[in-house]
């Protein structure tokens, strides 16, 4: 195994980018790997269950993961995470626009060759 293939502890931010949008009390967050070959790793490690856990303290009740292998990308829809959304949220970020960065903070294990800056 070459040095570039050795799995390292890192964060999603090193291998993917993301954008969050809202509809009502739901957040929709895309997750797009910098390198298409990292898509499989995202499928394996960024599960609905792990995303639910990452957003549990914000009230997330359900996560649906949509797969777009052609792009490739994943799209997560997270219910009840906006604490009422624009209608009721007391959070400074009522639309949850910053939540893409919370997703990218998730710990993952990835070889250097799949990272943005390898």
């Amino acid at each position: 195994m070459s040095e570039d293939d050795e799995p390292l502890p890192t964060r999603l931010h090193e291998i993917a980018h993301a954008r969050a949008g809202d509809k009502g009390n739901r957040s929709s967050i895309s997750l797009i790997p910098y390198r298409p070959e990292a898509y499989r790793l995202l499928l394996e490690q960024v599960t609905e269950q792990r995303v639910l856990e990452a957003f549990a303290h914000k009230g997330a009740s359900r996560v649906t993961r949509y797969e777009l292998p052609g792009l490739p990308a994943l799209n997560f829809v997270i219910d009840d995470v906006l604490q009422g959304g624009v209608n009721a949220a007391l959070n400074l970020d009522q639309h949850g626009k910053t939540l893409s960065s919370l997703l990218l903070a998730m710990p993952v294990t990835a070889p250097r060759r799949l990272m943005r800056r390898s």
């Binding site: 954008r19 739901r26 895309s30 797009i32 777009l68 052609g70 799209n75």
Partner: peptide, 25 residues
Amino acid sequence: KEQLLYEIHDPARYLTADVILDITG
């Protein structure tokens, strides 16, 4: 890609007044 997926929710069924858009392909 970031804008294509922005606020799309189900990428196979983006509902509008004119059509249901499917971007999965």
